[in-house]
Design a protein around this nucleic acid. Structure first.
Lengths: 203, 203
DNA sequence: CACGCTGTCTACCACTTGGTAGAGGTGCAG
DNA sequence: CTGCACCTCTACCAAGTGGTAGACAGCGTG
């Protein structure tokens, strides 16, 4: 029933996610976050004991989304081309649904590389290994190019997706400044899929 | 003769580049930059009238490098595979020579998308159009895949290169945490080249 | 020598930052 | 009603921020 009544803590977390993503952690003051929620700074600090605690919560929230999304589609899909489509679609959908996710991730990666190392190992690596195994299978049945470096390939596709979706402006400016942004993005994502596909499968 | 005697202004710019790249603009104080150079804050502000002026100088410096590098190799290279190799090699070399360039660029793109729009249009787009024309030629002589979206393809390769080289940690952690970083990077860049090549040329 | 230019400093300013203290207020359980 | 847990506030703090004022030192030129 309380689907539309969100707690203060949740509202704070959402506002912080948005602001951290767009202005960076250091570029965002607790004041600004509190104002966005419509509360004062001490109230915010009642819910999260420090700015760093808030950062941790925001990040954990993101990874929770990721962890809840990925496994269900790994088991749902069959194999070969269909599986490839499902995975890339979901990857793109995840970051496109809320581009702040891509921005936030990119920022954390750059701001705290050492800290993010374990996060990546925990949240990305297991999934990477599973999908890499799919690819190896595909190689054996001759469906996939022999010279693909499975893990490396996957990481490139993920990196490219995140980087692309966290920088809509770059894309739009470089590609076709005068055209409607959404159409340009659509076109650019189509090329991303093509690039991923054609460099993986045998013709 | 004064090749090793660098002026204060230059030293400041270099230090600022390094710190802005690694800790972000908002995460870096003038104090910290001055300390790195071995001067005080007012001295720094004597050479650059404001923090924003320093940011502008740092960015201009980066683009100057870029502009001086690109054209000479565009004319130096012949065509086809050789040209492709030369271009991707140079792209990778440019950002690998100093990974702070990739970091800084990525950060500015995220921090000030609106401002960076024109920078991208001025510095990247012309170059993109020229190379896209090469690709179109390659298509006509049947050397390049028909379904390549030239500009979009190029932008993806650039984006991927920057994102990859600005996040060595991500790569290393996700790919092979226990192996020597340099070897992992080498492997990862090899796959990047393969990906770029195979999705462009006909077999 | 005296002048002015360039570069560096110390001392300071107003302002913002993350964070604390402590006083309510509201609503629910005994 | 009393207590109490939860939440929100006003008022405040020490530390750090970007930036300014002004003194002074070196140094080449008249």
């Amino acid at each position: 029933m309380d689907t539309q009544r969100a707690s203060s803590a949740e509202l704070i977390c959402e506002a912080a996610t948005r602001l951290f993503a767009r202005q960076g952690f250091d570029g965002t003051s607790l004041q600004a976050i509190a104002a966005q929620v419509g509360i004062t700074k001490p109230t915010l600090l009642y819910h999260y004991p420090s700015k760093d605690a808030l950062r941790a919560a925001v990040l954990e929230n993101l990874f929770a989304h990721w962890r809840s999304t990925v496994p269900q589609l790994l088991e749902a899909v069959t194999s070969g081309h269909a599986r490839f489509e499902a995975l890339t679609n979901e990857l793109i959908r995840f970051f496109r649904e809320d581009p702040d996710r891509a921005l936030l991730l990119m920022r954390e990666l750059m701001d705290r590389p050492v800290h993010m190392r374990e996060q990546v190992i925990d949240n990305l690596r297991p999934w990477l290994r599973v999908v890499a195994e799919y690819i190896r299978t595909g190689k054996r049945i001759g469906q996939i190019r022999e010279d693909v470096d499975e893990e490396s390939y996957l990481l490139h596709v993920v990196t490219l997706t995140i980087a692309t979706l966290s920088n809509a402006t770059l894309v739009q400016a470089a590609l076709a400044p005068e055209q409607p942004p959404q159409a340009v993005e659509e076109r650019h994502l189509r090329e991303l899929r093509r690039l991923a596909k054609v460099s993986l499968f045998r013709d």
